[in-house]
Design a protein around this nucleic acid. Structure first.
Lengths: 244, 244
DNA sequence: TCATGTTGTTCCGTTCCACGGAACAAACAT
DNA sequence: ATGTTTGTTCCGTGGAACGGAACAACATGA
């Protein structure tokens, strides 16, 4: 089980998850556990391929990866059909809007649109967060079958803020409420000062995604946001059915 | 100069540019020029790494690439600061909006937002088109120095539609007009039935991007779009200066 | 200016695994 | 039933990846 050259290249690239930030050769060597000459040689290859870039001593992910990543069908197609509905939702609420799908026990964000005000959030396009800590995640979890919930609860629940739900019983109750109302709420469970409301997107009986609105805690008013989120999720559900 | 395993992996992945569409093993073998057993073995490795996915006989790009691609700093940072301005521009025009940068003699699109109406366009996020055939491209070209224009004109100009500019003299004239007005126009030069207007984004004396509005030919009215595009481009220029 | 640690780079003998032709199996077409 | 294409396995061989060691290019401090 000695790692091949390809594996090592993957290990190097994986270093850049989740920060993406620039690393120097020594840091890469340390973080990957690979000998320095090996990283040096492989990094040169990766640069030649456009998968890495280098300015002085700084290594970064290369533009070619952006190009390839944008073509991944499972991501691109859903994002494309969802975009108009996300626009609608954004215009209706003028708040930060998310589209996410489930990947294992995490939610992966496919899109995130917002206006000028920044709103510090841990969510990034292509990034992932624990299902139990986000509105999108809970919306996905509540409609993905009991087995998934059981498996999730078989391990301790992660915590991103002091408000994250870590009590299994409480999460179960929350999910039941979501199943009844069709809406998931989240209050400062992923980031302090930010609340969130989400709704699931269905296609052919399965839950394929969820979309949400994130709002600064002080001006969070579920009653106003709920209809907009519901409308967008339903519209997207119809559109997804039509395109797949 | 025999290709390493990494090179071959890159060759395989590059097959999926620009269509991204699913390929079968034989097609991959043919398109890459690699022997079938080699593709078979490498594809298995790539699947293990999440860079490819396979359903039955269909190979596709894998989700991991989306994750990595979303982290590429040069792309992500600009897209992030540009998004609010693209939103403004979209709301002002309610038409398809683009953000693009130059890469060699092509324009690469970083973002593309639109409403419900489809509008068949050759532009895709992460995809590239010839500089001379798009409004975004011409806006970039007009403000990237004379040497670049000379080099572009040293080879025959590509043509995407019968309206694409292929006459060097005509392109030069067009670029001069763009330099004066600060706005680039394009009428069915990239796709039939679609017109476009673009403006460059400056940061520290160099042109870092351009943004555009694409409109069905029949309702294209430059006078109405021009101020919105200009405003967005100027706003983004200011924001980019501030963040870099 | 020299001493000292750190980081980046080159060298090269050894090892080991990637390679792909050939043979086989499976799926389709006729 | 028969040919044809596609997917998969096998395996002996060659060559390329490997990484310790030595070197070079900096940076830091006295």
């Amino acid at each position: 089980m000695t790692a091949s050259m390809l594996d090592k290249a993957a290990i190097i690239l994986d270093c850049f998850i989740p920060s993406g930030g620039p690393y120097r050769l020594s840091e890469l060597s340390e973080r990957t556990g690979l000998p320095k000459p090996t990283v040096h040689r492989l990094a040169a290859d990766l640069i030649r391929l456009g998968w890495l870039e280098r300015t002085g001593p700084q290594y970064r992910l290369g533009a070619k990866l952006f190009e390839l990543g944008s073509l991944v069908p499972r991501r691109r197609d859903l994002r494309e059909t969802a975009l108009p509905f996300l626009q609608d939702l954004f215009e209706a609420t003028r708040e930060t809007v998310h589209l996410g799908v489930r990947e294992g026990m995490d939610v992966v964000y496919l899109e995130r649109i917002h206006g000028h005000e920044a709103l510090r959030l841990p969510s990034r396009i292509g990034g992932s967060l624990p299902l139990s800590c986000t509105a999108v995640g809970k919306a996905l979890l509540a409609f993905s079958g009991a087995e998934l919930t059981d498996e999730l609860l078989s391990r301790p629940l992660p915590r991103l803020t002091p408000h994250s739900i870590t009590d299994p019983a409480r999460l179960r109750m929350t999910l039941e409420k979501i199943q009844v109302s069709g809406l998931a709420y989240e209050e400062q469970e992923a980031a302090l000062g930010v609340s969130c409301i989400a709704a699931p997107v269905f296609a052919g009986g399965t839950t394929v995604a969820a979309l949400s609105v994130a709002v600064p805690r002080e001006r969070f008013s579920p009653a106003q946001l709920a209809p907009a989120v519901r409308t967008a999720a339903l519209g997207l559900s119809r559109a997804v059915r039509g395109s797949s």
